[in-house]
Amino acid sequence: MTTPRVLIFGGNGGIGRLMAALMLANSWHVTSVIRDTRQEADIFQLGPKLGPKADVLVVDLAHMKDEDASKIVTQVKPNYVVFAAGNMSNVNAVDRDAAKKVIKASVFSSDVRKFIMISFPASRRKRAPWWDETDYQNYLDEIRAFPEIAKAKLDADEYLVAMAKQRNDNSPSVFQAISLRPSWLTNASKGKVHLGKTNFSGQVSRADVAAVVVSLLSRDDTTGWFDLVEGSDDVETAVDKAVRDNMSSIEGEDLEQMYSKAR
């Protein structure tokens, strides 16, 4: 089996580092995109002491152009791309615009087979059909508290859906697009999660998010939106259930409206 090549945007974030460490422990080839050269030393420490280390690219995503994203993907030739970057002070430039540039570059690359966006459960236009009234009110509260983030993340998520459909409609190679939507993040790993259609309110550890990403990337049958909170299943069981039962949390959204965003 060919060693997977993974390109991580947001490589210096908590989830980005944990993902890279897990991937390197599995002997995957990892390229981590970071914003500041001062972060390089920490990235080079990730992974087994005597094992492979990540390659590093220093890029300011807030000022990245379309052609820059294309050059990165062309240079690295990843099989999997993970967008885990975010910037609370420049949400539209990073969480929305940079994400869309990376999505477009990935879709147009025949090397890329899988793309995971790290999003969040409030990234939707409609009330999820499985939510109770408390879930719905908590969703509305979060939208009101973080309107700019909610809009930016939703725009990126919907663009990924649209561009993935365009790629799959016009290419013989399958492109798997996943929006992973963890709830409030903690640092205390529990090792037990609920993935798919979950309650809106909850929390989940960064380590468990990273483990779910690696599990999802390790499969050839996974696409869609997956909400993630603490739960009662180990990661592999949770992923198996979500895929087997088609528990994509995109249910209830307007797919045709999303598909119109492809360009």
Rank of each mutant, 00 (worst) to 15 (best):
M23Y: 07
N90C: 03
V212Y: 05
D157V: 01
A210M: 13
G231Q: 01
K65T: 14
W131M: 04
L255I: 15
I43E: 03
A99I: 04
N90T: 06
D111T: 12
Q75Y: 08
I72Q: 06
G16V: 01
I250E: 09
L228N: 10
W130F: 07
I116A: 06
V235E: 07
F200Y: 15
Y259W: 15
R263F: 15
V6H: 12
V243R: 06
G47S: 02
Q257R: 15
H194C: 10
V174G: 06
K104P: 00
F115M: 01
L50Q: 12
G231S: 00
M88H: 09
A98E: 01
L22S: 08
P147Y: 09
T74G: 11
A54N: 06
D95R: 01
E133I: 04
A85G: 11
L57G: 04
G202E: 00
R244E: 12
A69Q: 05
S27Y: 07
P147G: 07
S189A: 15
Q257W: 12
D95Q: 00
P121R: 03
F115N: 04
K53H: 10
W131V: 11
G202A: 01
I34L: 08
R96V: 02
D220A: 08
K104F: 01
A93S: 06
T186F: 01
A162C: 10
V58M: 10
S249I: 14
D141N: 10
R219F: 06
A54M: 07
T31D: 03
I8W: 08
S232I: 07
F226C: 03
G224Q: 05
R206Q: 14
V107F: 09
I72P: 11
R219A: 03
T31F: 02
R5F: 13
S173D: 14
L18W: 05
V204A: 07
S201V: 01
E236V: 10
P4Y: 08
V112C: 12
A164P: 13
D240H: 09
Y259V: 13
N90V: 01
A210P: 11
L228E: 09
Y139I: 05
D254P: 14
D42T: 04
G14Y: 05
